[in-house]
């Protein structure tokens, strides 16, 4: 089983890296791109768990380790 966890900064948190990338893209002529927000992707391989157990475990590590809940949020996909 595989899981992909997407970690992004909360909407209320400033993303200076995304802003810098946005300015660079604007400089390259991509005028229609109005905003860039940078995030992280984690691919997890899981073994010996039911889909429900896998979901529970992925949510737990995403919440406790992969994100800092003060500034980040996450979503994930499970590929059974």
């Amino acid at each position: 089983m595989k899981a992909r966890v997407y970690v992004t900064l909360k909407k209320t948190v400033l993303d200076p890296q995304g802003q810098t990338i946005h300015r660079a893209l604007a400089g390259l002529g991509y005028k229609s791109i109005k905003e860039v927000r940078q995030g992280k992707v984690f691919d997890l391989k899981l073994d010996g768990l039911s889909p429900d157990q896998a979901r529970q475990q992925v949510e737990q590590v995403a919440r406790d380790v992969l994100t800092n809940p003060v500034v980040e949020e996450f979503r994930y996909e499970l590929d059974e």
């Binding site: 948190v13 810098t20 003060v70």
Partner: peptide, 11 residues
């Protein structure tokens, strides 16, 4: 301690 650290504003 409460809070978090972000990248410096000029990266």
């Amino acid at each position: 301690l409460p809070g978090a650290m972000l990248r410096n504003r000029r990266l």
